[in-house]
Write a protein that binds this DNA or RNA. Sequence first.
DNA 1: ATTCTCACA
DNA 2: TGTGAGTA
Length: 145
Amino acid sequence: METAAPGAAAQDGSPPAGLMTVGEIAERVALSHRTVRYYDDEGLLPARRSPGNYRLYGEDALAKMLTIRRLKPLGFTLDEMREVLALLDAVSAEGAAGPDHEERLQQLAALEVDVRRRRDKLVEQLQGADDLLASLAPLLPGGGA
DNA sequence: ATTCTCACA
DNA sequence: TGTGAGTA
């Protein structure tokens, strides 16, 4: 019977080489399975395929998916996320080898500046929310206590 | 459970 | 940039 799941994932929770299906990785990174699928379709985070054409994700993909999840609320577009993942990949894979290592470090520094800037913007929005809550409090029942 | 396509915002 | 529905 080949109605179970992917290449080897039976119902005993023992997928091949610790690989996950869309539903599994989606749950683990708290993204909808539709979104994970979308990222695969868009080539942001390509999935491997089981013999039955089911998407399979390894620990490596899980790590990248988590990075994507962190980039998302910062407002990075899919294209920007693609660049970030590529940069991170290049940097970790090439160590201090590649001829363009210098440029990589420069891009990494630029990324840090960018992330910091977006972070600051979020802090401002958070402050705005806090201010709003503070203005609502005294209007609520018992708020003037 | 997962696949894909198409529509809708 | 996603999501919901319908399908196999």
